[in-house]
């Protein structure tokens, strides 16, 4: 698969990473090379093979329904770039 500028721009937008227009071409080449490298997998017949879901062959552990966490707003907000009245603040979202 060879990616063009438009595809790279779309990926960057999905990943929320700003890419300058002048960098798109270079990035397209780079990402295309990587895709070509990983596409060697296509040559392997994987019919009837189940995808690995976890290397740990365990049961999913469960917690009991007890409140034993939270209640420490100061720890939650300690590293916040912007906060007020116990809330995180972000640029206004217009819906």
């Amino acid at each position: 698969m060879s990616l063009d500028k438009v595809a790279v721009k779309n990926i960057a937008s999905l990943a929320r990473i700003e890419v300058r227009d002048e960098d798109l071409d270079g990035l397209a080449v780079e990402l295309s090379n990587i895709l070509r490298f990983v596409e060697q997998l296509a040559e392997v017949n994987t019919d009837g093979i189940a995808p690995m879901t976890s290397v740990a062959h365990l049961e999913l552990p469960r917690r009991s329904d007890q409140v034993n966490d939270g209640g420490y707003v100061e720890r939650v907000l300690a590293n916040a770039p912007e906060q007020q009245d116990g809330f995180f603040l972000v640029p206004k979202v217009v819906e």
Binding site: V76, E82, Q84, D85, G86, F87, F88, L89, V90, P91, K92, V93, V94, E95
Partner: peptide, 14 residues
């Protein structure tokens, strides 16, 4: 998200 608390910010409560 609370959008009506501030003219240019949204407030986030998790």
């Amino acid at each position: 998200s609370l959008h009506d608390q501030h003219p240019t910010k949204s407030f986030i409560d998790l």
